[in-house]
Nucleic acid binder design. Structure first.
Lengths: 356, 356
DNA sequence: TCTTATTTCGTGTACGTACACGAAGATTTC
DNA sequence: GAAATCTTCGTGTACGTACACGAAATAAGA
């Protein structure tokens, strides 16, 4: 087995043609006779040509622009993690001559989502990454992009009916099912409470809906007698939340199992800590700093977490390869692991997020 | 902020010198006046130079050779996972002109380890990756390599007293502690059993020792009354193992909690399945195919798993950057996450291992 | 037949870095 | 003070690919 790498020059010699012709064949450009094209293809096959990505990227003078659309966020919130992951992924993409711009929208306002899409269109990006919340508008956007030949990658959640290059994220339904098995698997209680977030306007296509379905499906098939209470918190109204929880737990002192499907389990953890309540079993999602603290202190028993960094790295990478080499990712739907964090393994998990 | 990238040519112009001189400064080569060196450094600082890795790698005609030393393995065994991870990491390293050779040794024979080290030395590699089992011999090897200027990376476990460039693996002690909390955290039993592997020769410096210490330390501080039985299985002697377990469970029908610290929990899972025993709680390590099956079927409750692929990718990457650019990894000891797998999240975990 | 399109292909340059070679200049030696 | 040595630096070429430009070769039009 020869250790030397096969280059276009070798292909050209083998095919009895010039480098230029080989190059044209490789890039599916016009101006090459069918006979020559065949010769080149055969030579490539025979010699086992592989592209030298370093040389290719070096010679490629184009500059690509990716536009990323996701919900706006405050400090310490879930979407900030995603934003950081984008920055991290952008670093890996510099060798592709790629830069990434992020646009945000108010996730509670459909109008704002539409406005953000218009901004995105005005930006004329070569590729788009989107964390979708609104189904119909996302489908329409995907049609627009398809028409323009602009590739679209979904992260975090996807809209199956849309036209997209790839999706990287956890399986939503299964993540709810997992939460149920962690919360209810050992000693099933009689009733539990699900703390949700108050949303303005009837947003039926919220991704955490699928997660709740996974949870309730587990309950339906394993614990049909279980009673699930639903209570609604407000993201930024601590007084309201505390009053609500005081009332709830006052009326239901027997309830010891709590679940949230959004990333704000720390709202409840804070309450439990301040009130000094013991013996509750709490399951939540996403690796926010405040959630990490809640796990460390033992208030939250299980935290279900997705690998945001990996998802974005792979999403950006899929677009980079598409832009630079025209290659399509092997899988369209990439369901990524759901990690279970408890007090004893959370430290080494969060440490990893510091560099890679 | 100028979007153009700064090149050596820009540095040369700014410093009033030639590209050659700039190049010499960058590679710490001789033949440049102190005055000029200073000018170049200043220009680099001022313009914010960053190396174009594509161009650098393309121009670098050297070919590097990494030698990887790890225990020999049969099909479906733990070290086969590591071997596969090496192959996967090698693919990422082709752009660095790096190839990897793997040497294996009988992990139960110190002599064979020494012999493998001699073979490694004869190979004259530019870098070494090792999964160490024998402490003293590893330290000696690290001295030899240090003297030759050959970098050494530990994976899987490390020998702290050795001289090494970096380590990528899980924290062994903590992984045992985690196992204890998963097995014993909810309803502590009176006694449990730890199935171990019979080893020839008194190998005290086996890495799983630290794992067992983590487990027993948890027990000592949380459940000092707990009785731990130790039983010894043989890797390839099913009849012996079954007889042993028949005898053990016959004499101790009350024991329902089982732990293993090696990767062979499937030996016990097979027994449990064949005997049709119910109600046991089993915790094991490592994502072997047979272990995955044991989790799926519900026999093994928790499987603690490390990200072998990531560990090797990062290990190889650290060496690649050292060889090609002379850069040292930011952290020497990289403790990587311990993942907890149960029936409800193992599918999407193992799926990930197919491509990336 | 000569010009004008059209197809097909080869040559040359660029990308940014690495390094060999050799030319100036500075320093030493006798 | 000339030759020899050493220090310091600039030039040139190579890495493998991308693409513009223009040259042949062929076909079409008059």
């Amino acid at each position: 087995m020869s250790t030397k790498k096969v280059t276009v020059k070798d292909i050209a010699r083998q095919a009895g043609l010039s480098i230029g012709t080989v190059d044209r064949v490789m890039h599916n450009r016009s101006g090459v006779a069918e006979e020559s094209r065949r010769k080149v293809m055969e030579a490539m096959e025979e010699l086992g040509y592989t592209l030298n990505t370093n040389a290719s990227l070096l010679a490629n003078k184009k500059h690509y622009h990716i536009c990323c659309l996701l919900p706006s966020f405050g400090s310490g919130e879930y979407w900030e993690l995603v934003d950081k992951a984008i920055e991290s992924a952008e670093k890996d993409a510099v060798s592709y001559n790629i830069s990434i711009d992020t646009l945000t929208y108010d996730q509670f306002s459909r109008e704002d989502f539409v406005a953000a899409i218009e901004k995105l269109k005005a930006n004329l990006p070569q590729a788009v990454i989107i964390a979708p919340i609104y189904r119909d508008e996302t489908i329409e956007l995907s049609r627009y992009l398809k028409e323009k030949g602009i590739p679209l990658v979904f992260i975090d959640s996807k809209v199956s009916e849309a036209d997209y290059l790839a999706y990287y994220g956890i399986p939503m339904w299964e993540s709810g099912y997992l939460a149920a098995s962690l919360l209810l698997g050992d000693e099933p209680p009689q009733s539990i409470v699900n703390f949700r977030i108050e949303r303005g306007g009837g947003i039926a296509d919220n991704p955490t809906l699928a997660r709740r379905h996974g949870f309730t499906d587990y309950v339906a098939s394993n614990l049909p007698e279980l009673r699930i209470y639903n209570e609604f918190l407000r993201p930024y109204d601590k007084a309201h939340n505390f009053a609500l929880m005081d009332k709830f737990f006052g009326e239901h002192p027997d309830i010891r199992h709590i679940v949230t499907f959004n990333s704000r389990v720390h709202l409840i953890a804070d309450y439990i800590r301040e009130r000094g309540i013991k013996g509750l079993r709490l399951v939540g999602f996403d690796i926010l700093d405040q959630n990490i603290e809640a796990v460390r202190s033992g208030v939250v028993k299980y935290l279900i977490v997705q690998r945001t960094q990996v998802q974005l790295r792979r999403g950006v990478n899929a677009l980079a390869e598409w832009l630079a080499f025209g290659t399509t990712p092997p899988l369209r739907d990439n369901f990524m692991p759901m990690d279970i964090l408890i007090k004893e393994n959370i430290n080494f998990y969060s440490e990893m997020y510091k560099d890679h």
